[in-house]
């Protein structure tokens, strides 16, 4: 069971306190988009064996959504960050790169 730090309220909690929300940073396509764009928005997910940027909600805590960067392979957590950004912060990307350099993730 994952141990997750909520970046909004600062609490460390059991995974059961949180609800997963799938891949992060998906761009929404609405009216006017092509079938391909819309289908990709609705259905295409990376589902990687490795580094995953994903959404979580502190469902049984502060109720806030946030992002987590995690290895789906080793469950290593590279960091958590708030929901109101469209790209991961640089320090987390640096940690991911370091893990890749050390061969811990692909």
């Amino acid at each position: 069971m994952l141990l997750i730090d909520c970046p909004c309220c600062g609490v460390s909690g059991e995974e059961t306190e949180f609800a997963p929300g799938g891949e992060a940073h998906i761009v929404r396509f609405g009216p006017g988009s092509s079938d391909a764009e819309f289908s990709s928005y609705l259905f295409d997910r990376k589902n990687p064996r490795g580094v995953h940027f994903e959404r979580w909600r502190h469902a049984f805590g502060c109720g806030k959504w946030f992002h987590m960067a995690r290895s789906t392979q080793t469950l290593e957590v590279f960091g958590v960050y708030k929901a109101d950004v469209t790209t991961p912060p640089q320090d987390i990307l640096d940690r991911v790169e370091a893990a890749k350099a050390e061969g811990r993730v692909k």
Partner: peptide, 13 residues
């Protein structure tokens, strides 16, 4: 309620 919050927090923040 969760659905409203999801859109407010993650899309139209």
């Amino acid at each position: 309620h969760g659905w409203f919050e999801e859109w407010l927090q993650t899309e139209w923040f």
